[in-house]
Design a binder for these strands. Structure first.
Length: 349
DNA sequence: TCTGGGGTCCTAGGACCC
DNA sequence: TCTGGGGTCCTAGGACCC
């Protein structure tokens, strides 16, 4: 989906049509904590993008406003509603395609091999795009390729409202000029490491031997070697099992008070357990506590129980037990304000 | 202008087992 | 004065994705 959350807000509120829209944390006049979740294309013209600090987005909006352009509209977001729209879109797609993998709230993979030809696949995708536009008043971008990797990269090339087809014989010419960064799994760190080896484009990556990549990146190096060639055999998988459930909270202001912190942690543990139940699980074995300090330095500690635990009180108790060493340290050393606490449950039943 | 929330996967060291 | 090989599980950290 194109600028999914922002597009839904723009659709729902006719007054916002054509305005720059930012869904994310409350900017609080530039003092807000948090990041941009989604910016629509108008807001992107101001340099506002997903994942940038909300305060920075606010500054960019202010700069535009002073230049005589409309200020961006900041919206907190209604994530439950977005989930419902996502479900509607899934239902539309399902009328055309049987095998679908929901990759995230706004992305899915469709196995179109039943179409038999690229021409037929394009027809199906055109119909899907049309139906989503008609029924949901939203646009999406689709990539068609011989596998998930190529299709995903293709889907990003002509946003918004794009349809990009890359047939087998075109794969290498399509990939070669692109930055290695378009390969899913190559993020900022890997990009820097690759640049040290003078690798920027996928064509550069393809010139490096499998051995060299393995030596630098281990198992992942082998994967990169394959991806640079557009090789991917990952199937379109309809079901996926949830492996963890978590809740975390960044505080409005960094916290120091042990009483306040343990109170927050208890609530967090309780809510995480609620989410676990809501997801249809009865218990867990591993509990991880995350503590993020002022300055973003983050520590995690975990405990794995011998047996499955299915009681909220046990969870709260153990979470606080894991947290105690952080508090003890506080009494001996200088205080370290805490920015975030998080609770994650794994090994679910 | 400091950096959300909810996830997945991988690595590396140590304990432990046969 | 020395201690293999193969495996699993646990912990902590980190990269990455939407």
């Amino acid at each position: 989906m194109d600028a999914f959350f922002a597009a839904i807000e723009e659709r729902n509120r006719p007054k916002l049509k054509g305005m720059p829209i930012v869904v994310g944390a409350d900017p609080e006049g530039g003092k807000g904590r948090g990041v941009v979740s989604t910016a629509n294309y108008k807001a992107r013209e101001y340099g506002i993008r997903s994942a940038i600090p909300i305060g920075e987005a606010w500054e960019k909006s202010e700069a535009a406003r002073k230049a005589g352009k409309p200020a961006a509209v900041f919206i907190g977001g209604s994530y439950g509603d977005y989930g419902k729209v996502s479900a509607n879109i899934y239902e539309i797609v399902r009328k055309h395609v049987e095998q679908i993998e929901r990759a995230s709230i706004d992305e899915m993979y469709m196995d179109l091999s039943f179409a038999g030809s690229y021409e037929k696949a394009i027809e199906i995708c055109d119909a899907i795009k049309e139906e989503i536009r008609e029924q949901e008043k939203l646009t999406c971008s689709i990539g068609i390729g011989p596998n998930k990797l190529v299709a995903k990269i293709a889907s990003d090339r002509k946003k918004p409202d794009g349809l990009v087809v890359v047939e087998e014989k075109e794969v290498q010419d399509f990939l070669d000029p692109l930055s290695v960064r378009v390969i899913p799994g190559i993020g900022p760190k890997a990009e820097v490491e690759l640049q040290k080896l003078n690798i920027k484009a996928i064509s550069d990556l393809r010139k490096v031997s499998l051995e060299t990549l393995r030596a630098h990146f281990g198992k992942w190096g082998g994967e990169m070697w394959r991806k640079a060639r557009g090789i991917s055999d990952s199937p379109v998988e309809e079901s996926h099992e949830t492996k963890s459930v978590s809740k975390q909270e960044t505080f409005h202001k960094d916290l120091l008070d042990p009483v306040e912190l343990t109170g927050v942690l208890k609530k967090l543990a309780h809510d995480t357990f609620g989410a676990l139940k809501e997801d249809g699980f009865s218990g867990f074995r591993t509990l991880t506590l995350a503590v993020r300090f002022k300055g973003f330095d983050t520590k995690t500690v975990r405990h794995t129980f011998k047996n499955t635990q299915s009681d909220a009180h046990t969870l709260e108790f153990e979470a606080i037990k894991l947290f105690l060493p952080f508090l003890d340290k506080r009494r001996n050393e200088r205080a370290r304000p805490i920015r975030l606490l998080g609770v994650r449950l794994e090994k679910l039943t």
